[in-house]
């Protein structure tokens, strides 16, 4: 069971990472990065690292996401690639 969950989370994380890198809208990219972080947080929990998972959810998905969004508002929204 845990194998399937992990596998699914992995695949989703990879998809989120690819989306984050390829979205032309930087805000969407930032959001996608947050999703990616959240998925990895779930992955950590599934792999038994509960503390790391929470940490990643708060810092990785939360703080980093906010930082990125703020940065996007201070700079530009669109990206060429």
């Amino acid at each position: 069971m845990i194998t399937q969950i992990c596998g699914l989370l992995f695949v989703l994380a990879i998809v989120a990472a690819i989306v984050a890198l390829n979205a032309k809208d930087l805000l969407a990219a930032a959001a996608s990065l947050s999703v990616f972080s959240f998925l990895t947080a779930l992955l950590y929990i599934a792999l038994g690292a509960v503390d790391v998972g929470f940490n990643e959810a708060v810092l990785g998905a939360g703080v980093t996401g906010v930082l990125f969004v703020v940065a996007v508002f201070h700079t530009q929204r669109r990206s060429v690639d």
């Binding site: 984050a20 930032a30 990065l33 700079t75």
Partner: peptide, 13 residues
């Protein structure tokens, strides 16, 4: 990626 923000996202990943 040529956008600096994208590079940073890559670094995060």
């Amino acid at each position: 990626k040529e956008n600096f923000l994208k590079k940073l996202i890559g670094m995060n990943i």
